[in-house]
Design a protein around this nucleic acid. Sequence first.
RNA 1: GGGCGGUUAGCUCAGUUGGGAGAGCACCAGCUCGACAAGCUGGGGGUCACUGGUUCGAGCCCAGUACCGCCCACCA
Length: 801
Amino acid sequence: MEPLYTPDGVEERWQRTWEEEGLYRAGAGARREETFVICVPPPNVTGSLHMGHALNGSIQDVLIRWHRMRGYDTLWQPGYDHAGIATQNVVEKQLAGEGTSRKELGRDAFVERVWRHLEETGRTIMSQFRRLGASFDYSRERFTMDDLYIEAVMRFFVHLWERGWIYRAERIVNWCPFHETAISDLEVEHVEMDDTLTYAHYPFADGSGHVTTATVRPATMLADVAVAVHPDDERYRDAVGREVVVPYVERVVPVIADERVEPQFGTGALKITPGHDPLDFEIGRDHGLPTITVIGPDGLMNEYAGDLAGKTQQEADEAILAWLKEHDQLEKREHYRHAVGTCERCHSRIEPLVSLQWWVAMEEPRKPALEALRARRVVYHPESQHQFAIRSLEEIPDWNISRQLWWGHQQPLWYCPNEHVTCAWPPPQACATCGSKELERDPDVLDTWFSSALWPFATLGWPEQTPALERYYPGDVNSTAREIIRLWENRMIWTGLEVMGDIPFHDVIIHSTILAADGRRMSKSLGTGVDPLDLIAKHGADATRYGLLKMSSTQDVRFAEGPLEEGRKLANKLWNVARLLLQNRVEPDARPRELEERWILARLDATRAELERAWSRFDFSHSVQSLYRLTFDDFCDWYAEAIKPRLREGDEDAAATALAALERLLALLHPVMPHVTEEIWSQFHDSRLIVSAWPEAEAASADDNAALQRVQEAAATFRRSGVLVELDGDEKRIFDAVVRPERAKVNGNAAAEIERLRREVARGERMLDNEKFVANAKPEVVEAERDKLARYRRELDALAG
RNA sequence: GGGCGGUUAGCUCAGUUGGGAGAGCACCAGCUCGACAAGCUGGGGGUCACUGGUUCGAGCCCAGUACCGCCCACCA
């Protein structure tokens, strides 16, 4: 063994070995009936490992490896999401680069092209996860576009249809003019943009003056059907009920009153354009106004735009502005900064568009999920996110599930010439209503999240009642980032309750976001991303896992390399103490004989308890800190130093107990740092640590702990002041072994130490003289103060006397 | 505009029910001891964002202010 631990080669070797020996497989090493199941948030099939994956992978792997060692039948389910709009976007961009487009290719050729693209560059993340040491059951990899998975999606759709929860409605939706598809509210990204607010006169039809409205999109005036004001707005009291003339198109429309108009904004008069604005759509609907559409799905002015048909919106804006100027109806234009909806994939400006879409009515399906959250059968961590998840379900809108895309699950809906709709799977032979055989399938595909919502049970074989589904559903934990609570987590809960009759997991971990060092989000487009694979290459997978876990918490954290270096130091320290202890090849023996042996076994057990407590609460940051302290302070600095003289004398008991203690230390560290621990383990075991037993709880003696604490305090006093506190027996022996007073060059300062103790004594006396403190503080707090005062007085006497 | 979180050492962050202000890194000084200089020992460094309140006692509880971040949102 070399003195410097280098993870290169070692880590890859174990990753191969574990997988080849089947130790990653579901159920490997199981010694009990209970299962422990996590399904990974399926990454995009075209994606590559980023910091979020690496952090989340580390968290999940700690839980999986810990439970595997505890003997559970574990399954960590891997797989990929087809990521409809994202993947289609990538391929469309390629086509654009080749001077062609999906429309030129046609649907079948395009989908073929996507598959080819995935064969070349898809499905790479799972191998990157392997390099992190993630112990997925890779043999069970699933993809949302696998034939069996498609089957599940279709069957689930039909199930919802039969429940009567799927309906078609014409509504205003978020339309992406680049992808030419509707997207859900959750896929819209609001971005602050500079804009211009145009104030235009709408003359009264009777020629007596005008009302002024403000808009950022003059082109939409062509579709105006009213002007609305707030009912309590004094300025427009007389205007309500009269008629105005819309500029350019010179259409006569009413002035109406509606409470949803904000009197403070602009002029307080709002032009109503139901075809192109969500608020206007609602107001128009409630007032029985018609809907006019002048912008088409391609973002250009359509045939209802009269002489502006075929123009871009910008051209239409300019034409209308020119008209307003010419007719002296342009009041002013002013700079205006506001949030504009954009497509989160292509960043095109969202076009609110009235269109016919399919929806899932959420009123019924959300109920059991809400109940499960309220009853805390499913709990989000931290608590604030649990409350958020509940609020999200309380306010959940109906779900627009159809997307006008080609890459995805085509809806199992067919239309006959008589306009009947048939929903069926497998594909029907005839219309369910009229029996017509002329069926045409709905071209739309489903929202990507529709298939993701089925992940916990579809990956196990649903709708078939497979043995895997029987055994591994429901699962236990799900771990993810904040932003997909609504998109994914809540949906898995209601779909699980709906078709499986049970929740998919009982705990949801919402982990921190790792920000770039400057506090901005890590993102490819900003160039602020840090590649986890680079970190692994530099520090090793163990150190990277350690560092990321250290950075995990409930709040966002700025990325720093310090914690990873800490992890590397820990691996190296462990490696070296193992070198020391493995010099004496004896059988490990866990029967402690001496004080320091009883003490280190007690410390190991205390850390075991701390880890169990922390991991049960999904607190990983503190757990790795416990491991660091245990290894450096307790194991190396005290225990290893204390037994060195005995090892030198050839004390076989000391060597045997030391190896037993090392075994436990390796076991405790394994879930966090699997590679270095397995490598050391293999030096004195034929078995594999990954499937070895997690240490059992042991009884510990408080006296041993107190004795060691006396030695540690004596050491601190000696090092600070040069004063030797009297000790005897084992305490003296350990003190001599660790501190080596005969060789120590103590730069102690007794005078300063005496001064320090005097201050402490004075402080203690002040507190205990304070009657209100003694009367009001908890008895144990007062008692602790008395103890401390007594100790400081004792030490002061020893030094000064 | 609404909701949530943050502000503690030069940096990244802990601080569990109110009672000694901490860790790692960085910095300074001293140490080659039977594994480890990627080591060991010691040290310097803080108005716990600000203002007010409750309390014998506040980093922690309450009210407010400032700044930062995230999520949500139909002020045209």
